[in-house]
């Protein structure tokens, strides 16, 4: 480390490999405020890195979205397009993002603007890379709010606040009171009809706790914050999920007079192949979409995490392990808990209706009631919502990191300051979401940021890495330090097949969403101002952060960067 104890001005950029080509020391680059050179953080251990990466990938979707989609789209047959998408889209993009991150990290870049400029050799690359900081921070705005619901439900599972005993509703519809509980908590129920919560105070309290926890972890940095969290949360997540999966499989047939209500009937519902579904384009679209979301591709967080690797650290095996761990959590554990338990409690027909109503109904309306049927149900419900919370928070800190890293890298803002800024953004942008949830505010974020934006950014990544960076450099960089030989066929997949696949996804999603999400067909006219506010916020953040990147770009002209051939 002593070799880097020297100073240089802002224009004496390059650092990293040019300054110390064979060094494993990471350098933090000069900033707009003047010279700033210090060793940047690194992961404490490979286990910690894999846990953090797996935590970043494993999210709420593994346990709520996957089983619902599989059951809805052909059961076992859904896994055919799912695994094809994993092979042609998920794993290649995982390797690309890991490699981009490690490459950028050698030059002190821990966020995508700098990484893209390095790869493209153009200032415009930096602007494209700005999407890698604006999209994740927008994503985390709504993700953290949903994450706070899981924290609240873990608490309410212990207190028994939503149980049938606690309900005073006279209703024949079994899920009526848990739905009422959720809608009251969210403030969606009109005033005067609320039973459980008369105000949003509890929701806001848990949301503030979730935002605060995220900020605290980010402020502690990579090793002491994110890695430590992952080392605690991920083993607990797997433990809770395995306990729940075993418990669900042991439920048998709770009521012998209703033999169809069993966990095995639920597993059959998830896994029985319906090959006719493969003829439908939307099934292929849903499978590819799930692979895309479940691996946290296109969020800029994988690059950020990988940028703390050393120059010759392996990306191939570690990236593959991340994807494999995520698939274990999703296909084996995620497919065994929610739907089978729902079928054992409510039967197949009711579960099909629940599944068609969305992941939130499955997770927050059906599951609390299903756990109630089990002995020690409150305990299993607590485990369920705690595992969802762990899955959520290990993902949300990853989504905050690209912006925090950029603020540190470009404007010299310290870890605590960057974390505070992320917190303020989450609060300011999240408040309308909390207040206007019932007006479709979340759906606009989900489409423009969580669906369209991420796929667009991933497409641009592939073009920059596979085509502009240079085909030889791309392949050499991918294989550097690899502990797993990447088959040559992935060269062609990265350059041709994956971009084409993403293009089809983008067109397909746009086509599917033209009416509802883009033209706002079916949305009540009274909701239009809220929906436009949501769109305006998204556009404003993208433009504002693009401007911040541009200003940084102006102070660090591309002419001072090393030429592409040098790196």
């Amino acid at each position: 480390m002593g070799q880097i104890a020297m100073s240089f001005g802002p224009q004496q950029y390059p650092v990293g490999r040019i300054l110390s080509p064979d060094s494993n020391v990471h350098l933090s680059r000069s900033t707009a405020n003047g010279p700033r050179l210090k060793p940047s953080e690194q992961w404490g251990s490979r286990f910690g890195l894999v846990m953090a990466m797996a935590g970043n990938a494993i999210g709420l979707g593994n346990f709520l979205r996957f089983p619902r989609l599989a059951a809805e789209h052909g059961g076992g047959a859904f896994l055919i397009p799912y695994f094809i998408a994993l092979l042609l889209l998920g794993i290649p993009l995982m390797w690309v993002e890991w490699t981009m991150g490690r490459h950028g990290g050698q030059f002190g870049h821990h966020s995508t603007p700098g990484m893209f400029m390095r790869m493209t050799g153009s200032r415009w690359g930096k602007l494209i890379g700005s999407l890698g900081i604006s999209l994740p921070i927008l994503f985390v705005v709504f993700y953290t709010y949903i994450e706070s619901w899981t924290l609240a439900y873990a608490f309410y599972s212990i207190t028994g606040a939503y149980t049938t005993e606690a309900a005073n509703l006279a209703t024949s519809e079994p899920m009526m009171h848990t739905r009422q509980f959720l809608h009251d908590y969210q403030g969606v129920t009109p005033e005067g009809e609320r039973v459980y919560f008369q105000s949003l105070r509890p929701a806001i309290t848990f949301w503030l706790i979730a935002v605060g926890l995220n900020c605290w972890i980010i402020s502690r940095g990579v090793s002491a914050g994110i890695e430590k969290l992952a080392k605690i949360a991920m083993p607990l997540l797997f433990l809770f999920a395995i306990v729940l999966a075993i418990r669900v499989l042991c439920t048998g047939t709770p009521d012998p007079s209703l033999p169809d209500r069993s966990a095995w009937a639920g597993l059959n519902f998830v896994w029985e192949p319906n090959f006719t579904a493969l003829a439908h384009f939307d099934v292929w679209l849903a499978a590819a979409g799930q692979i895309f979301f479940t691996l946290s591709i296109g969020t800029g967080s994988i690059q950020c995490y990988a940028s703390y690797l050393k120059r010759d650290d392996d990306c191939a095996m570690t990236g593959f392990a991340t994807a494999a761990t995520n698939e274990f959590a999703e296909v084996v554990l995620g497919g065994t808990i929610a739907i089978p338990l729902a079928v054992s409690s409510f039967g197949l027909a009711a579960t099909q209706i629940i599944a068609s109503q969305g992941s939130f109904d499955l997770g927050f309306v059906a599951m609390p009631l299903a756990f109630e049927d089990l002995p020690l149900g409150w305990l299993f419900a607590t485990l369920w919502f705690s595992l969802l919370f762990f899955a959520g928070i290990t993902s949300s800190v990853g989504l905050c990191m690209p912006l925090a890293a950029f603020l540190h890298e470009a404007y010299g803002i310290g870890q605590k300051g960057s974390a505070a800024i992320c917190g303020v953004i989450m609060l300011v942008l999240g408040l309308p979401l909390v207040l206007f949830l019932g007006h479709g505010y979340l759906d606009q974020y989900d489409f423009w940021v969580g669906t369209f934006g991420l796929a667009l950014f991933a497409f641009l990544e592939l073009i920059c890495f596979g085509w502009i960076f240079g085909r030889k450099q791309m392949w050499t960089e991918l294989q550097r330090g690899a502990e797993l030989k990447i088959p040559r066929v992935f060269y062609y997949i990265i350059r041709y097949i994956a971009p084409a696949y993403l293009l089809v996804l983008l067109v397909g999603w746009t086509w599917e969403s033209v009416g509802k999400e883009i033209l706002l067909e079916g949305a009540p006219v009274a909701d239009h101002p809220y929906l436009w506010l949501s769109r305006g916020t998204i556009a404003g953040v993208v433009v504002l952060l693009g401007l911040l990147v541009f200003l940084w770009s102006s102070k660090n002209p591309i002419e001072n960067e090393p030429a592409r051939g040098e790196v």
Partner: peptide, 30 residues
């Protein structure tokens, strides 16, 4: 659940679990 569905499900479980364990153990052994 038919035998075919059961075998299919168990095969996927075994392959996915084994792949995850193999890759994690390879990393930890280095």
């Amino acid at each position: 659940m038919t035998i075919g569905t059961l075998v299919f499900m168990l095969t996927v479980w075994v392959v996915v679990t084994a792949t995850a364990l193999w890759s994690i153990l390879r990393i930890l052994s280095k």
